[in-house]
Design a binder for these strands. Structure first.
Lengths: 250, 250
DNA sequence: ACCTTAAAGGTATAAAATACCTAAAACAAA
DNA sequence: TTTGTTTTAGGTATTTTATACCTTTAAGGT
């Protein structure tokens, strides 16, 4: 456990892929901020902090959300994604990234804090062969689907790309989210603690790169119904019968 | 990325769950060693080393295998499992564990190295509600299936248990291995670069807690055949038609 | 020649997923 | 009260996939 040989200890950072949902435009969002410090000054990247001696990585991920967005979350709204340790991933000090996925049940107002020139929600925009992150005039190609992690670090990366290996981290996150859709769709937490099946189908459609109409209401209940449980009714949200409200089981 | 605030940096360790297979007894094995140093002196635990400044965590996991077993592996025989960061997981210095799963295609002879009083292969022994690790007179209860990670650190742990949170790590590894059986059964690498479908079914039976006869040969080909590709024939290994040899696709 | 074991194919049934449909419920607005 | 809208909640028919079970052949051993 504790090998007493002297090694220079790396800096341990926590990096979050924070997901939210825009109920108006029906877009899945990821939070990026524009760095105002070296390294990667001016570049857009994922929110990051440094692990403190008295907190677990999970706690640090929650603290990071609190600091950047003022939102207090509990641990079932985060999931460990992976640890990125490539030696050259950040210039200067050796830095490890312990990464987490965070599902925000609200879409809070954004105020650039310390270390950030700007902060924005980027819409996850699935293309046929990749995902893009789009916010108005700004756009990042998450990563082409078929590029392996090993290849990623070999590539030249331009100034119009995300800081460090954050494109790889986002790609990994989306992969994980898609894998889980059929047995543990925790991404649905971005819809709030409870949600209608309509909304759930919209999110599935987006991530599975198909249109909402391609996901049959009746069949969706049959195949995914066991993942949800009912909590009550919604207030009439317009015309038509109000949709029933569900939450994730377990 | 680099927050310049002064924090005490944790020790970053690499911990491996090394799997192998005994072709005679048809047992899935995990390597444990008995520690000869504090902390947890005398306790059995997973092989661990400290991350060096000039290597990635993946490289360190491979180095650890080389140091403990003298076997040189390449990166497609390891997979990141997760990072364990609970503040109290190790007494003394704050220590993070970056954990990997390693699939050994051979079962090398064991020599206790530095820091170890003994080293042994433990058979993964599935029970109805848990898995045990068994080596002759020694036995450890991996962990009861229904104990969550959060609960794990709350519990009192006796001296007859694995060091630190290694029981939790092993449990997590077995969970992962089982999840992947139907789409990416990398655990089959313990059978070597190539293997017969008979052997594959034996390993599936073990992990799915059923008998080999319950897994129909013909059906197994139909449902899992797409995961394998043929490489040739084996030499006659006894009586009967020699089994064809396959390897994992992709 | 005979035994053994895996390969390689088959069929019949069961279970799951999908396409498509109907009727009722619950509201808003005319 | 009637009409329109949208979801609920159920249905059936078809297709696909998984499972149980069986037969024949291949390729070795003795």
């Amino acid at each position: 456990m504790v090998s007493e040989q002297i090694v220079e200890r790396p800096l341990v950072s926590i990096t979050n892929v924070i997901f939210s949902f825009d109920t108006v435009t029906k877009q899945l969002l990821v939070l990026l901020l524009q760095r105002s410090q070296a390294p990667f000054m001016g570049a857009w990247g994922l929110p990051t902090t440094t692990l403190r001696s008295n907190e677990s990585a999970d706690a640090a991920a929650l603290r990071l959300v609190k600091e950047k967005l003022g939102v207090h979350l509990t641990s079932n709204q985060t999931e460990q994604l992976g640890t990125f340790t490539n030696v050259g991933r950040v210039p200067g000090q050796r830095t490890l990234a312990l990464t987490y996925m965070v599902y925000l049940p609200v879409k809070p107002a954004l105020i650039p804090g310390a270390g950030a020139r700007a902060v924005r929600w980027f819409a996850v925009t699935p293309r046929t062969d990749r995902d893009d992150l789009v916010a108005g005039d700004l756009s990042f190609t998450g990563l082409t689907d078929d590029v392996s992690a090993a290849d990623f670090y070999q590539r030249e990366r331009g100034t119009t790309q995300l800081a460090a290996d954050h494109a790889l981290i986002v790609k990994t996150a989306l992969q994980r989210v898609r894998n889980r859709l059929n047995y543990a769709p925790t991404i649905l937490r971005v819809l709030g603690v409870s949600f209608t099946l309509k909304r759930a189908r919209e999110l599935y459609a987006l991530l599975e790169r198909r249109s909402v109409s391609q996901i049959d209401n009746s069949n969706f209940r049959k195949t995914h119904g066991h993942l949800f449980e009912q909590v009550g009714f919604v207030r009439g949200n317009g015309s038509g019968r109000p949709a029933r409200v569900y939450r994730l089981k377990d």
